[in-house]
């Protein structure tokens, strides 16, 4: 109920039109990875999924931002965010292991492999988390997603959003090839997201 409300709010504020290119909504376990330009990214991407998939899909978000204040904490609970502490990462408690433990064999993930929100027009280099996710769970479908225009809705450092229309594009799933080096894979996955921009 609150989830539907939040999705509706995202619709009014960011008016996302959604395209599925070479990919269909499915309940199988997936990792959606997208470019990151705004705090709204996680909510908008999550809202762009069909209602039946939303309870099964968990956006990975920064704990320091989403635990600040009652409203944010409530919203994070509603879109069942998986909050990761960026300041407190230990070797034996790596975020990747935690994500895999949390999703079990049912849930899907939404990750932003750039790490932080980037301000430029170009999509930044991907961090290695996506590679380790794919390596530890080769059965997960990796779905590239491109989010357009959200940096104009709520840019970095701004408090009040401007309601504009955004565009969410889901691309064809990919997997880690056998023996594919980390750098190659991260480059390939970054290009998969970039490519969706112009489709």
């Amino acid at each position: 109920m609150t989830g539907t409300l939040l999705a509706l709010m995202a619709k009014i504020l960011a008016g996302a039109s959604v395209r599925w290119i070479g990919c269909q909504p499915d309940t199988c376990q997936r990792v959606y990875f997208a470019n990151h330009t705004s705090h709204l990214d996680a909510i908008v991407l999550w809202s762009a999924l069909p209602a039946a998939l939303r309870p099964l899909t968990r956006p990975v978000a920064a704990k320091d931002y989403w635990e600040k204040g009652v409203v944010r904490r409530f919203m994070a609970r509603t879109f069942n965010a998986m909050l990761i502490d960026r300041t407190d990462i230990k070797v034996h408690q790596s975020p990747v292991d935690m994500m895999l433990r949390e999703i079990g064999d049912r849930q899907s993930l939404i990750v932003f492999p750039e790490g932080g929100r980037n301000t430029g027009a170009e999509i930044g280099e991907f961090k290695s988390g996506l590679y380790y996710l794919a390596k530890k769970r080769p059965d997960l479908e990796l779905v590239p997603v491109h989010i357009d225009n959200l940096n104009r809705v709520l840019p970095r450092g701004e408090f009040l959003p401007v309601p504009l229309l955004s565009l969410v594009t889901f691309g064809p799933p990919m997997w880690l090839e056998a023996g594919e080096p980390k750098v190659e894979f991260l480059k390939r996955s970054r290009e998969a997201v970039c490519r969706l921009k112009d489709l």
Binding site: N149, R152, E158, L160, V162, P163, L164, L165
Partner: peptide
């Protein structure tokens, strides 16, 4: 509101316009 949203979406505004746009909307 909907028309303006559509209009501004198609307008190449820059980051510096953000606060002004908040006032407009």
């Amino acid at each position: 509101f909907w028309a303006l949203r559509e209009f501004i979406t198609l307008t190449p505004t820059r980051l510096g316009d953000h606060r002004a746009l908040s006032w407009v909307f």
